[in-house]
């Protein structure tokens, strides 16, 4: 079993073993379930956005009906990291996406637990002025 960490939290996936340490091959249905990206003839798509498979390196991205999700994320400039045994993968967001979100001035939404474990989302407080502040015990 392989754990994938995305902004939505951890997800367990079935990944095909591969000798290529940089690759994470998933069935298209798994890619869609965990990442929200769908394999289509025009590339890997989410909403209106499609990432075409680069000509000449098709086999690095889509092969035998599986998707190398790590290759697609790297192509989008998103950080992809793995643990030593490659049993944990982290898929981050690119600086460009983060900056674009901030430049929209629409406050990025998040969901975090309170001390009792109850989740709170920023969007729950829409309609209210929010003073969002950080602190730390350290």
């Amino acid at each position: 079993m392989t754990t994938v960490l995305t902004e939505q939290g951890p997800a367990e996936i079935e990944a095909a073993p591969t000798p290529d340490t940089d690759a994470l091959w998933l069935a298209p249905a798994e890619a869609e379930r965990v990442f929200g990206w769908t394999l289509k003839p025009e590339g890997l798509c989410r909403g209106e956005v499609c990432i075409p498979v680069p000509a000449g390196s098709e086999a690095d991205y889509v092969a035998d009906g599986a998707v190398n999700i790590a290759a697609f994320f790297r192509r989008m400039g998103k950080p992809v990291l793995t643990s030593r045994d490659r049993d944990v993968w982290l898929f981050g967001e690119s600086a460009g996406d983060r900056a674009a979100q901030l430049e929209s001035l629409e406050a990025p939404d998040f969901t975090l637990p309170d001390l009792h474990g109850k989740p709170h989302s920023l969007s729950d407080y829409r309609g209210t002025k929010v003073f969002l502040t950080t602190w730390a015990s350290w």
Binding site: F110, V130, F131, L132, T133, T134
Partner: peptide
């Protein structure tokens, strides 16, 4: 709330505590 992974620092490009963001009724 507790942010063990520093998601907020990633989302809002924060580097220290305390840092704050003012958000209006429309978000």
């Amino acid at each position: 709330l507790v942010d063990r992974d520093h998601l907020l620092a990633d989302l809002y490009n924060m580097t220290n505590v305390p840092q704050a963001v003012w958000i209006d009724e429309q978000g």
